[in-house]
Amino acid sequence: MTSHPEESTSSLTVERESTASRQRVWDVIADGWTYSQWVVGNSRMRAVDPRWPEPGSVIHHSIGVWPVVINDSTRVESCDPGREIVLIAKGRPVGTARITLRLHDLDNGGCRIEMAEVAVSPPMSWLPHQVTLAAVFPRNRETLWRLAAVAERRASDDT
């Protein structure tokens, strides 16, 4: 059931290796309440659909720093539990993006995390994909660093 959005084959896909297992990283992604802990720019969670991360489920979050926050939401477009999730994230005022996260086992018991993002609505979708991907690359690199850190911290809490 794995999908292949065009951004997932981009040369600007961000990758990070984690010592946490693929399941441990998935557990963080599948807990919608952790979204603001690892997604750069999100300041707080407002609500999480109890069906998260099933396709069509939504989380409601805020971006920005108080007192200038914007309430937005992210919807699951597709999900292959433990392996891949494709999200449609609203990001007013810059538009909506499709984000693909993929997880791969490593021989050492860890996980390689891949993240790709492409704008799917104006104004960012008016720009060439390579320009928008280059613009989000640093943020996505930090996002994966945070995701790995949360998963690794959870793994160390279990021992």
Results as ranks from 00 to 15, higher is better:
Pro67Thr: 05
Val150Ile: 14
Met124Phe: 14
Ile99Arg: 04
Val48Asp: 07
Pro128Glu: 09
Val48Asn: 08
Gly109His: 12
Glu152Lys: 03
Gly91His: 13
Ala148Tyr: 02
Glu114Thr: 11
Ser156Met: 08
Glu152Cys: 04
Asp105Ala: 14
Val131Lys: 07
Leu103Val: 05
Gly32Trp: 03
Asp107Phe: 04
His104Tyr: 10
Gln37His: 12
Ser21Arg: 13
Leu101Gly: 02
His60Trp: 12
Tyr35Val: 02
Pro53Glu: 08
Arg44Asp: 12
Arg153Met: 04
Ala155Phe: 01
Leu103Thr: 04
Arg153Glu: 11
Ala119Glu: 02
His104Gln: 11
Gln37Asp: 15
Ala134Gly: 14
Ser156Lys: 11
Leu147Gln: 02
Leu133Ser: 14
Gly64Asp: 10
Arg139Asn: 04
Val25Thr: 03
Ala151Lys: 07
Glu84His: 10
Pro67Gly: 08
Ile113Cys: 06
Arg112Asp: 04
Ile70Asp: 06
His60Val: 12
Leu101Asn: 11
Asp80Arg: 12
Pro123Cys: 04
Pro53Phe: 05
His61Cys: 00
Met115Gly: 03
Gly82Pro: 05
Pro53Arg: 12
Arg83Lys: 13
Val39Tyr: 02
Thr96His: 09
Trp38His: 03
Ser36Tyr: 01
Gln23Asp: 14
Thr96Ala: 12
Pro93Lys: 09
Thr100Arg: 08
Asp31Leu: 07
Glu142Arg: 14
Leu87Pro: 05
Val40Lys: 07
Ile59Thr: 14
Ser62Leu: 06
Leu127Glu: 08
Leu106Tyr: 00
Ser36Ile: 00
Gly91Pro: 00
Arg22Glu: 05
Leu133Ala: 15
Val65Arg: 14
Asp105Pro: 09
Glu114Met: 10
Ile113Arg: 10
Gly64Phe: 00
Ala155Leu: 10
Arg24Glu: 13
Gln23Phe: 02
Pro122Gly: 08
His60Cys: 01
Val68His: 13
Pro122Gln: 03
Gly41Glu: 02
Asp105His: 14
His60Glu: 15
Ala47Gly: 11
Val76Leu: 00
Gly91Ser: 14
Arg83Trp: 03
Pro53Ser: 11
Ser36Trp: 01
Pro55Gly: 13
Leu127Asn: 06
Arg154Asp: 12
Gly56Glu: 02
Pro93Asp: 06
Leu127Ala: 15
Asn140Cys: 10
Arg51Gly: 09
Thr96Arg: 12
Gly56Ser: 06
Ile85Asp: 08
Arg46Tyr: 00
Ala119Thr: 00
Glu54Cys: 10
Trp38Met: 01
Met115Thr: 01
Ala89Leu: 01
Met124Ala: 15
Thr34Glu: 07
Val94Trp: 05
Pro55Met: 06
Arg75Lys: 15
Val40Pro: 00
Asp27Gln: 10
Asp105Trp: 06
